[in-house]
């Protein structure tokens, strides 16, 4: 999961630094993730995992770190598979 998140983050995050330099728990907004890039990332995650982010996860916190994104996607995948 973390690897896919990293791949998509590298492609859609428009980050000024390499994703390889970012720890799983590091703050992505501090690393330069813009609101717009986080939306692009969300849409890419939805397409890749064939899920839809519910309202309660459409916030800054869900995209604040690689760990947070992986947790959000896992939660959605579990819910939407159930």
């Amino acid at each position: 999961m973390h690897d896919v998140v990293r791949q998509l983050l590298a492609k859609h995050g428009s980050l000024p630094v390499s994703v390889d330099e970012i720890a799983n728990n590091a703050d992505l907004y501090d690393a330069g993730l813009s609101s717009f890039a986080s939306v692009q990332l969300m849409l890419a995650l939805e397409e890749h995992f064939d899920v839809e982010f519910p309202e309660h996860l459409l916030n800054r916190k869900s995209f604040s770190s690689i760990d947070a994104i992986a947790a959000a996607v896992s939660e959605i995948a579990d819910d939407q598979a159930a």
Partner: peptide, 14 residues
């Protein structure tokens, strides 16, 4: 759009 909802939430949070 849907992405816009997240932009809106983010704008409010900040």
């Amino acid at each position: 759009g849907r992405g816009g909802r997240m932009m809106g939430v983010s704008q409010r949070e900040q």
